[in-house]
Design a binder for these strands. Structure first.
Lengths: 156, 156
DNA sequence: TTTCCTTGGGAACGCCGATGCGCATGGGAA
DNA sequence: TTCCCATGCGCATCGGCGTTCCCAAGGAAA
């Protein structure tokens, strides 16, 4: 991991389908050297894959819910059971156990509020060990620096 | 947007660098037809781009902070000012205005707690209009269904 | 029925990415 | 200092992939 690797990751984070030749030119390497770097990054699992950026709203998913869930237990087995159940719910795109009270924070994508109500009733409410569920809805997404900038610094 | 388009988006969401020929075969189309579909999806902005999935931990960013910030104002101009300032902070990868009190929820990536303390002191604390800052730290990320499954349903 | 428009399939062309080889550089040991 | 090995790059090649033509088929409207 040197400056060149970080530059490659930054470029790929911004546009994963950019031609290797273009990335190579941007970082001052030949195509072959750049290809080998990328292969090494993938092998080392620093690069875990590539994904498409979808426009949820245009696809008809206009509701993003941020949900805080507290559990009535702290036993690891109960947490694992909860997590296994959460992992199977369609619409849950993120879930993390966080500090400050034993609770989870989820991000959920839904078509509309009715859809969320259904998901809340059929799935969230039936999760094992849940004590409280607190839902917030995203009113506006604020554009931020990309992941690449966050990790490796923005324009200097 | 029909069943084939959703299938294409789902596949690309899972692996954006999958060969078009492979995607085409999976959805039962020829390469050329599949390419045109993808181009149309990009033109319609349903597909906004492609990004690399980076492993933050392996890259040395072991702290993910989820930060709730409440503002002392609801005037749109103040919100805009706050948002503009937030958008320039390295490390902030997500920021959303949410319902339930006039507050923002951010996701921030840092190398360690010292790094977060610095960011908190130098940037978060100086954001305009801030009344309270509440930080939680991710202890464990729970594997969830991918974005594609969330939007288009998981395995039936 | 005729025409137009949409959408898919086939084939060719050009480009891109992967691999092997040779070479340069740098660090370690004798 | 000298030799050696490891690391990493560049060049060239080859196979494969993606893009883009063109044409055909099906459906809707006039």
């Amino acid at each position: 991991m040197d400056r060149i690797d970080t530059a490659i990751l930054k470029l790929l984070a911004a546009d994963a389908r950019a031609p290797v030749s273009q990335v190579a030119a941007a970082v001052g390497l030949s195509q072959s050297a750049c290809t080998r770097r990328i292969q090494a990054l993938e092998a080392n699992r620093l690069l875990r894959g590539y994904g498409a950026r979808l426009d949820h709203r245009r696809l008809g998913f206009r509701v993003t819910a941020l949900v805080d869930i507290t559990l009535g237990t702290q036993v690891e087995e109960d947490l694992a059971q909860f997590e296994a159940a959460v992992g199977k719910i369609d619409g849950v795109v993120e879930c993390a156990l966080v500090s400050g009270g034993q609770d989870y924070r989820l991000k959920i994508l839904c078509r509309d509020l009715d859809d969320y109500e259904r998901l809340h009733r059929e799935h969230l409410g039936r999760l094992p060990g849940v004590v409280t569920i607190n839902s917030s809805f995203v009113l506006r997404e604020v554009p931020t620096r990309g992941e690449g900038d966050a990790l490796f610094g923005g324009p200097r």
